[in-house]
Computed example of a mutant assay.
Amino acid sequence: MQKLTVNLWMQGTAEEAGEFYAAALPDARTEIESRYPTEGLLEFQQPLAGLPLTVSVWVRGTKITLINAGPEFSPNASISIILSFNADERDVLDATWAALSEGGSALMPLDAYPFSTRYGWVTDKFGVSWQLMESAEPVPDSTRMMPCLMFGGVAQNRAAEAIEFYGEVLGAKLDSAFPYGQATEVATADSLMFAQFSLGEDKVAAMDSGVAQGFSFTPGVSLEWPCEGQEEIDRVWEALSAVPEAEACGWLTDKFGVSWQIVPSNMGELMQRPGAFEHMINMKKLVINDF
């Protein structure tokens, strides 16, 4: 059962993006999950009154959330989404690449590489990065779609440290790790060219960039982690939050720069309470009894 959710910051385009992804991605559908209230908004939120707040996109049964907001942030390639395809799905891979490339740009062209017979890395017109990969071995359902954290810029060469830290805080378990073996422009020989770890049933990839990057993690792509009860929220929040000024509405930034949303597992139910949105926007760490 999915627990970790990738959240993508959209600059007022969440509904449009949801429809785009439902058409572009394999086995995908979209739904407006929640709307902004018409009252109790902060001044900068008032133009969004009544508009979609969160738009869900399910891809091969895995949910992504699009957050409808302002121009403050946008996604970048520090967190991309890997879509893996079986060898007999090349037509689907190629069609997905063509759809995502429309209005976007290729970071690595669709081609054969030493690690995959068909692979490409593309940033779509909404700024979201996707890695499409053909696999010679049958792809397990758990890795058909997974986020990939690229540690570059100020977070360069910290992928292994991050996986160990997420193990201590969230119970992450390392599945596989492939170091570079020899130094690159910015990566050390021990840095991770690619790794995969598990957060419960969810799979996450991580890598240290092999070349210098002028960007790193931002709230443009965040990871949502639900907690069972206030005690668990308190524990995870205290362990993860490393940038006090970034704390807002259940959002935090960890010591690697990764943005997380630490929410109660019954968040949907809490948001149905009268005045819940207004209460939420006045919190930093979410307190269940304050909804």
Rank of each mutant, 00 (worst) to 15 (best):
L8V: 15
F178C: 05
K284C: 01
D254K: 09
A155Q: 07
S176F: 12
C148R: 09
E161A: 14
D208E: 08
Q230K: 06
Y180M: 12
F151A: 14
A28T: 01
G127I: 12
G152Q: 11
L132R: 04
Y119M: 05
Y119L: 02
G220T: 11
I81S: 13
R35C: 01
C227H: 02
S116I: 11
R158D: 13
P71T: 11
A87Y: 03
I82P: 05
T123H: 14
G70D: 15
P147N: 06
G152R: 08
V258L: 13
D141A: 15
D175K: 06
P219K: 04
W251K: 05
W130Y: 04
G104T: 02
M207T: 11
V211T: 14
Y180E: 08
R158E: 15
L41T: 05
L270E: 07
E43G: 03
W251G: 06
I79S: 10
E19I: 04
G250S: 04
P114K: 01
D27M: 04
S222E: 09
M283Y: 06
T62W: 09
A87C: 04
Q11H: 09
G268S: 10
I79F: 13
M267W: 01
S78T: 11
R60F: 02
A177T: 07
G167K: 13
V204Y: 06
A98W: 13
G268E: 10
S105N: 08
Q213W: 14
P52V: 00
L93F: 00
Q182D: 12
A23S: 15
N68P: 05
S222Y: 01
F277L: 11
K285S: 12
G268T: 10
Q196V: 11
V243C: 03
I82D: 14
I81N: 08
Q272A: 14
T54S: 03
F20Q: 12
E164P: 05
M146F: 12
S116R: 01
F194D: 15
W9P: 07
S105F: 04
T65V: 10
R90G: 10
V236K: 07
P140R: 08
M108H: 07
S84I: 02
N86W: 02
E31M: 02
S176G: 11
A77M: 14
M108S: 11
V154N: 12
K284W: 04
P37L: 04
W251I: 10
P226Q: 02
L100G: 09
A95H: 10
M108V: 12
C148V: 08
S259A: 15
I288V: 15
E39L: 00
E232C: 04
H279Y: 07
M133R: 00
N289A: 15
L223P: 08
V122S: 12
M271A: 06
